[in-house]
């Protein structure tokens, strides 16, 4: 599937309208998202940027069904998320979404293979198939030979690859990544972004948060948050060499 055909596909994977989120604090509700509206279609690769505290992570957590908005609509894959119960959102997290964290979040006492296979445990895949699919994905991210190692035996970049393999193991439509390269050096970051680009070429929709313009250049579309609102939303200018004048 090419980028051209993907953009022609009009089905929205994510559709948010008038999304609000306020955290309860001792000093009363603290609004973080203020009427965010956004549609992301199948096959898109979106980078979300913005200053610290602008609400990017809050937004991603809502997209990932880890948190619930205070107001507004969120339709994921055609389903109104606010109407779903806890088990149903767990199912979405398991099947539809793959989440990649800044801090990798692998389980330290499990082998890489078991880490990758873990989402399959929660949807009742049998042991043999779990093992086989975990091996396949570890091989895909170039870590096939480390299947039996523990996470603390490999580098940060490798751990993030394992986390991506885990996110992919249940063949999700959507990958959400909150600063996936935030803990990595620039060379390793480029490798991770190349992996995301490859996944996007295979048709997986990707939304990632980043502070670094270089990283955002890998996306096809850039969205900028400021103080809980979207202030910029445009396709990436691929004609500009990375690291030069930024939009907005």
């Amino acid at each position: 599937m090419s980028a051209a055909t993907a953009s022609a596909d009009a089905a929205a994977v994510i559709e948010v309208a008038g999304l609000d989120k306020a955290y309860d604090t001792p000093m009363g509700p603290f609004p973080v998202l203020k009427g965010v509206s956004l549609a992301i279609h199948a096959g898109e690769f979106v980078a979300i940027m913005g200053p610290s505290g602008s609400g990017k992570s809050t937004f991603m957590n809502i997209l990932g069904c880890l948190d619930r908005p205070s107001g507004g609509d969120y339709i994921l894959d055609g389903k109104h998320v606010s109407a779903l119960d806890k088990d149903q959102t767990a199912l979405l997290r398991n099947r539809t979404i793959g989440f990649v964290f800044q801090g990798f979040n692998l389980l330290p006492r499990m082998s890489l293979e078991d880490n990758v296979a873990l989402p399959l445990v929660y949807c009742g895949v049998d042991k043999e198939e779990r093992r086989q699919r975990a091996r396949e994905l570890l091989a895909k991210v170039g870590l096939g030979q480390y299947a039996k190692s523990l996470p603390n035996r490999i580098s940060g970049g490798q751990q993030q690859r394992v986390a991506i393999a885990r996110a992919l193991v249940n063949r999700p439509r959507l990958i959400l990544a909150d600063e996936p390269t935030g803990n990595l050096d620039s060379h390793t970051s480029e490798e991770i972004m190349a992996l995301f680009e490859e996944l996007n070429r295979e048709g997986i929709t990707i939304v990632l948060v980043t502070h670094e313009p270089d990283i955002a250049q890998h996306a096809k579309r850039q969205v900028r948050f400021l103080d809980g609102r979207i202030v910029h939303d445009a396709p990436t200018h691929h004609d500009l060499p990375a690291g030069e004048v930024q939009p907005c």
């Binding site: 880890l66 199912l91 398991n94 989440f99 929660y122």
Partner: peptide
């Protein structure tokens, strides 16, 4: 706690 959070993020239900 963190492990539980990770498990939930990848699809563990309450009953799991």
């Amino acid at each position: 706690t963190r492990e539980i959070g990770i498990r939930m993020a990848i699809g563990a239900r309450e009953k799991d």
